[in-house]
Structures are given as C-alpha cells and as structure tokens.
Amino acid sequence: MDPETQSMKLTFNIHGGDFTHAGQPSSEVKKVLKQLGIDGKTIKGIVIALYEAEVNVVAHAWKGTVEVEIDESKITIIVRDEGPGIPDIELAMQAGYSTASKKVREMGFGAGMGLPNMKKNTDELIIESEVDKGTTVKMINYFL
C-alpha cells in the first residue's frame, strides 16, 4: 500500500491568549478518531490530553502548533510552542503546581492539573523545554 495512505496528518495553529478558540484542534481530532471507529474511552483520553496541552500554550506561550499523525495502531501528537519554557519539568508535573497568572486562574484555567492530566491520559508523554525559547510536548496513545 502507498505509505501516504497508511497515516493521516493534521496540523493546527494555536494563538497565545486566545482562550475563546482553545479546544478546536481537540474537537477536530476527536471527529476524525470517531470516524475511524476508535473506542470512546481511548478518544476521551486523547482529547483531554490534547485539550490540556492546547490550554497550556494559550495560557503560557505566545504561539504554537499542533501536529497530529494517526496510523493504524496509534496517534502521535506533537504540540510545539514558542514561549517562556518550563524551568523545572519535574516540579511542573506535580499535581496542583501552577505558574498561571491570576487573570488566567480567574478564567477557570491554571489549576496546576495540566501536565498531570496529560500524563494520566497518554501512553507516552515526552516534554522538552528550553527557558525563554519554548516547549515541545509529544504524546502517544495506542489504539485498542
């Protein structure tokens, strides 16, 4: 088979500070996964993890992209942003730890559950970050 047709690729842009439109990539990805007949629980985990990643970019970074690749057995999502970066990833992974501004918290975000939630809902999570440059989050979920 043509390798082109063995996977599906989707890309999205995210704008920092645009809370109104956070959630669009996760909704689109969900639609595709549903059409592929992926089971509801798996989809839910992926959507939650991606939404958290999106909100992180919106809340902390200046801009970012989402690259999604779906193949027969898994979905790989790479969320890349240009932003302040995470100085201590291990600390950020702790539930409740947050650097979100008061303004962001007042909007109902920034509870410090973003990264822990992503960890909980993905099979593989790799975070690379450089202070003042940006953060790259790679998430892999395997289908049943």
């Binding site: 088979m1 063995q6 996977s7 595709v32 007949g37 992926i38 193949d71 027969e72």
Partner: peptide
C-alpha cells in the same frame, strides 16, 4: 481502520 483511514485521506 486502515481502509477507513484511506477513505478519510
């Protein structure tokens, strides 16, 4: 799933 993906592409 593979056929579905082909169709969606």
């Amino acid at each position: 799933r593979v056929k579905a993906m082909e169709k969606m592409n």
